[in-house]
């Protein structure tokens, strides 16, 4: 029934959890977090290893979340306490995580889950093959969205949002901004790793290289969603993040069908993000041009205006002579 759109829809919902995490750092904390490229496979590695060890996939997914939260805490600590710049802090954690992930996976770069029972196979057994994954991912992402919506309106949540908006002000109101930022990065990377755990179960393997480019893909999804929905509230912003994720996967599927090679997609994504980030600048330049042109036309109008009374004067003179 869903045909070729089943896969991008499933992916969009699964990665929607990741995009909510990216939204939290990128838009709420105003922090471009590159830890994502490491915490995503971290979640996958933890979940896959746990599942092959016989741990229930639900618990394995939770473990993935906590692993990611720990990674986010490290990045937050590097940034706030050791004053390492936000980008570098993320890159350092991400780089370190590569080794950590391989350790967790017992030195192998790939753990197959083909013969294991996962959350996805369980859902497919219960609901049916076509809708199983969609229902499972949709359920999880909606729950997380709603919890996030509530959280961002709580006293702590308001403080967290203010950390990204006006740090000086919220500090003056008594918030320990370092602690809040670390906490925000922990939750965000927890969500990213949880997405990694779920994606690993979905594709039935965890791979140490599966994180490359996820941070930028997450940004692209957030930006795409915002372009469509133009959110003004938290409720619509989280919704736009999830829809952006789905839209992004559709775009990728579309690009593949249009003849792009799978290996070209990273470039497509990068260009998409560059374009979106440059958009305000482009608009600004256009505006400057417009204003310059408007000035030109108004000055020429003034000149016309000056000549007009003269002609009417001549006219009135004619009247007078008549």
């Amino acid at each position: 029934m869903l045909g070729i759109w089943a896969t991008p829809l499933e992916q969009g919902l699964a990665y929607g959890i990741l995009v909510l995490g990216v939204y939290l750092t990128f838009r709420i904390l105003n922090y471009a977090d590159l830890t994502v490229d490491g915490s995503f496979p971290l979640g996958a590695a933890i979940a896959a290893t746990a599942i092959t060890k016989g741990i229930h996939p639900a618990y394995a997914t939770m473990l993935g979340f906590f692993g990611g939260a720990l990674a986010g805490t490290v990045t937050g600590f590097l940034n706030t306490k050791l004053k390492i710049s936000s980008l570098l802090a993320g890159i350092l954690t991400m780089t370190g995580l590569y080794s950590v992930n391989l350790r967790i996976m017992g030195g192998r770069s790939n753990i197959p889950l083909l013969r294991e029972a996962t959350l996805v196979t369980m859902a497919q057994d219960k609901i049916g093959f076509e809708w199983g994954a969609i229902c499972l991912f949709g359920f999880i992402v909606v729950i997380i969205k709603l919890v996030l919506d509530y959280f961002l309106h709580t006293e702590i949540g308001l403080g967290l949002r203010a950390c990204g908006d006006n740090e000086k002000m919220i500090k003056a109101l008594g918030v320990d901004t370092d602690l809040y930022k670390i906490f925000g990065l922990a939750v965000a990377n927890g969500l990213v790793a949880m997405a990694g755990s779920i994606v690993a179960q979905y594709q039935a393997f965890a791979d140490v290289g599966m994180g490359i480019g996820t941070a930028v893909a997450g940004l692209a999804s957030v930006i795409l969603g915002e372009a469509i929905i133009r959110p003004k509230t938290i409720w619509t912003a989280t919704l736009s993040a999830v829809l952006g994720s789905i839209l992004y996967r559709f775009t990728i599927t579309f690009a593949l069908r249009a003849g792009f090679a799978a290996t070209d997609l990273r470039l497509v994504t990068a260009v998409l993000v560059i374009f979106a980030l440059a958009l305000p600048r482009i608009k600004e330049m256009k505006l400057v041009k417009k204003i310059a042109e408007a000035k030109k036309t108004t000055t020429s109008q003034v000149v016309k205006h000056k000549t007009q009374p003269a002609s009417t004067l001549i006219g009135s003179e004619k009247h007078a002579t008549d």
Binding site: Y150, F151, H153, T154, E155, I156, G157, L158, G159, R161, A162, I170, L173, G174, V175
Partner: peptide, 19 residues
């Protein structure tokens, strides 16, 4: 929301709705 944040100045913040 700004007022709600100021209302908690210097106090412990929790998981109650801010406004």
């Amino acid at each position: 929301e700004n007022l709600a944040m100021a209302y908690k100045r210097g106090q412990r913040r929790g998981l109650k709705l801010g406004v």
